[in-house]
Amino acid sequence: MTVLPKDIPGDSLKVTVGTANGKPGDTVTVPVTFADVAKMKNVGTCNFYLGYDASLLEVVSVDAGPIVKNAAVNFSSSASNGTISFLFLDNTITDELITADGVFANIKFKLKSVTAKTTTPVTFKDGGAFGDGTMSKIASVTKTNGSVTIDP
């Protein structure tokens, strides 16, 4: 049996954390987006972790974005102690894959008090994996961190 590389060099799934701005007490939304989904033969499963400074940001909610089908079954998240974990699994293993680019999740943060303008990162942590529509590992994932700026 011969195994051929399935990824064209330079191609990767792009996962990007967005940015937001606000004043202390505001609730802002930071999107997590996927790009080049079709090039990577869709997404059938993924789990990953984001870190944030809990002294500056309070997670209000984490909701599935419009590219997630049947989110009540296929999407899960949790947030505590400065870490947000995400889990997606197409429970049907074929019919509810992520097949389009767009917003995977929206994180709502309540901004805490600061004395001066502060930009705090929302960054990928170690761990996690992504699988394509056949549940094979997506070897190349380009992750881009985001941030939230609090301006009193």
Rank of each mutant, 00 (worst) to 15 (best):
M135Q: 03
A20C: 13
D95F: 01
I67T: 10
A54H: 11
V43A: 07
Y49L: 00
T115Q: 09
L89N: 00
P31C: 11
F104E: 04
D90W: 04
A35R: 13
S12L: 12
L97D: 01
D126G: 15
T144V: 05
N106K: 07
V37Q: 14
D126Y: 15
T115K: 07
T83W: 15
T118K: 10
E96D: 06
T119S: 09
S78P: 10
L89A: 00
S61H: 12
A100Q: 05
S147A: 06
V62T: 12
N42A: 14
G10D: 07
T134Q: 05
S113H: 07
K143E: 04
T92V: 03
V32M: 07
G65N: 07
P31F: 10
T27M: 13
V114N: 10
S136V: 01
S61V: 09
K39L: 13
P9D: 14
D63W: 11
F130N: 00
L50T: 11
D101A: 06
A100S: 09
V59I: 14
A71L: 07
G22C: 05
N81L: 15
A72V: 14
F104P: 00
F104C: 02
V68M: 10
S80V: 14
P152N: 07
T119H: 07
K110R: 06
T19G: 14
A79L: 14
D95S: 05
D126C: 15
G102S: 04
I107K: 00
D11R: 11
K23A: 12
T83R: 15
S113C: 05
P31E: 10
G44L: 14
A71M: 09
T120P: 06
V68N: 07
T123Q: 06
I93H: 02
S140N: 05
V37M: 06
T119V: 02
C46F: 07
G25L: 10
S136H: 08
K39Y: 09
N81W: 15
K125P: 01
T83S: 14
T29I: 10
L4W: 13
T29K: 09
I98Y: 00
F88H: 00
N21V: 13
G146A: 06
N91G: 01
V73L: 07
K41E: 08
T99Q: 07
F48G: 12
E96M: 00
I67K: 09
F34P: 02
S80D: 05
T144Y: 07
A72S: 13
S136G: 06
F109N: 02
V43I: 09
T16S: 12
